[in-house]
Amino acid sequence: MTAVRETPPASRSAPDAGHEAADAGLEAVFEATLAADERVEPRDWMPDGYRATLIRQIAQHAHSEIIGMQPEANWITRAPSLRRKAILMAKVQDEAGHGLYLYSAAETLGASRDELLDKLHSGRQRYSSIFNYPTLTWADVGAIGWLVDGAAIINQVPLCRCSYGPYARAMVRICKEESFHQRQGFESLLALSQGTPEQHAMAQDAVDRWWWPSLMMFGPPDADSTHSAQSMAWKIKRHSNDELRQRFVDICVPQAEALGLTLPDPELRWNDERGHYDYGAIDWDEFQQVLRGNGPCNEQRLTRRRRAHDNGAWVREAASAYAAKHGPEER
């Protein structure tokens, strides 16, 4: 019996036959757990690749949540009413919470919080490209809620059934909270769309700028997606990028009509044969550029994050000094 959080033994690479046989047995248990659609839990044996894939994905997801606070927080002080301001603060606070749930999930795999933050700050781990676009007007807050949170929900709902227990449980909590994010965005856009001609134009402009980057949130087309097949086999991923993207498009078209706004794609039309909307080609060069760090706000987002971390150092130091002074019986 050992402490619950102790880093689980990595798969042993010792060449002796005994260990190999033991590993084969453990792998069989792991495969059987997946086959039965049961959850893998932190202290179970798991292949190194499964562990590494999950750490990478959960960390990137956590980083996206906390970096994602920035574009919207940009408008908290300038929200047009107290109601909108309270809503926006609650949403941004939720995103911080989502980041923390996810960092905790990554830690159950043996990653340390400090190490993950360090990798974010030094650019060795990524966050979603969508947050490298600027929020130019108040309508962008609405467009983000409707489109960006909307796309996130489509990506995240299947993750509630991900094979790794702590990740799946974090996603259940997150998905419950996300639904208000999308609705408040939709409501805010609707108010603008039905407002003055200037407000309507502002809403349309925001949707025009956020539509294509939102489609890119589902990742590269299936043909170019490098990790997909293995992640599907491990039941980390349940649907392909293109499948989820199509689902998003199909959901958004009628919602845009309800908003009285158009989506900036002349090729968007219902395809009776497929039972889906056809949509135009996505500019994957732009996606790659932003991924490489050349988006409009990459530099700004990371600088702000590093500064927030550095500015909080004295708080963390003071809190641990206080804890040390009051002895282990209180800790």
Binding site: S104, E107, R169, R173, A319, E330
Partner: peptide, 12 residues
């Protein structure tokens, strides 16, 4: 059980 978090002491 709902999850975990980091803190320097019990009160925090």
């Amino acid at each position: 059980h709902v999850g975990s978090l980091h803190a320097p002491d019990a009160e925090m």
